[in-house]
């Protein structure tokens, strides 16, 4: 389908605050994004009218209980079936920062045993530093082609995207940690890992939160549901990179994420 007909639902509730950048990223690439409050999606709109669902960052419902938990619980109680169908048809669902937390709480990620687990299989816990960590982070692209959101980024390429979160430490249940991590790797579900300037998997401060296996982004086994803690929408243009006057790049590193998903929809639907 043509790019201009691709409808992207950018979903928000009270406390979401990154919706404009995500909306603009799709708009600038010629797609047809729409800002939608969860209440609108439940009562007036139909998810099946869209080809892509994005959950942007922010502090939904004040980050109370756990980050993303309230958003996820409301979404699940009202639209569980529709979400499952959407994902099963292969339509992309993306979550950035708080959106990643929502997808994990929903059970749409990592979704190791089914499309959507009844209870979360992972957690984005409080950063090891017990602080809000806000700075540019370097990420190595680890997806060997499974993730549809990063198809345009070469394997093992290091990209820069800013992180800004207090709860981003990716964790599995301790007793199942090794098994789940191995399955994640075998399924090609690890998409980005935090690295240092040499491209080595490094600890704090390169890994801002103490994430297991330096995980910054994952996708589901099918590759169409994707969540990441850093913000690709904040580095859409080269001049929003912190070192743009010293390092020449044609585009911002985040642009490829949005181009990849639009490319996938164009080819598939």
């Amino acid at each position: 389908m043509d790019t201009k007909y691709i409808k992207v639902a950018v979903l928000l509730i009270e406390g979401t605050n990154n919706e404009q950048e995500v909306y603009l990223a799709f708009k600038r690439l010629g797609a047809d994004p729409e800002l939608l409050h969860l209440k609108q999606l439940i009562s007036k709109k139909d998810l099946s009218d869209y080809q892509c669902l994005m959950i942007p960052g922010g502090f939904s419902a004040g980050d109370y209980v756990r980050a993303g938990a309230i958003f996820a619980a409301r979404l699940k109680s009202a639209l569980r079936k529709q979400l499952m169908e959407f994902a099963e048809k292969g339509y992309p669902i993306g979550g950035i920062c708080n959106g990643f937390q929502v997808l994990v709480e929903l059970g749409l990620l990592p979704a190791l045993d089914s499309r959507m687990s009844d209870y979360p299989q992972a957690s984005l816990a409080i950063n090891d530093s017990a602080r809000f960590e806000c700075r540019p982070t370097l990420l190595k692209h680890e997806s060997k082609g499974n993730c549809i959101f990063t198809k345009d980024i070469p394997y093992q390429e290091v990209v820069l995207m800013p992180s800004a979160h207090a709860e981003g430490k990716f964790l599995f249940p301790l007793e199942k940690q090794d098994e789940y991590l191995q399955r994640l790797i075998d399924n090609d579900q690890v998409v980005f890992r935090y690295v240092d300037t040499q491209g080595n998997y490094a600890d704090y401060p390169w890994n801002p939160n103490g994430s297991l296996y330096n995980i910054a982004a994952i996708c589901n086994p099918e590759g169409n549901v994707f969540g990441m803690m850093p913000h690709p929408e904040r580095v859409f243009y080269r001049y929003t990179h912190p070192d743009w006057t010293r390092v020449y790049k044609e585009n911002g590193d985040g642009k490829a994420v949005f181009e990849s998903v639009l490319g996938y929809i164009r080819r598939k639907f």
Binding site: R66, K76, S77, P120, P173
Partner: peptide, 10 residues
């Protein structure tokens, strides 16, 4: 607790 208050993972 299961629906919202606790994440059994941690």
């Amino acid at each position: 607790c299961k629906k919202l208050l606790a994440n059994p993972v941690i």
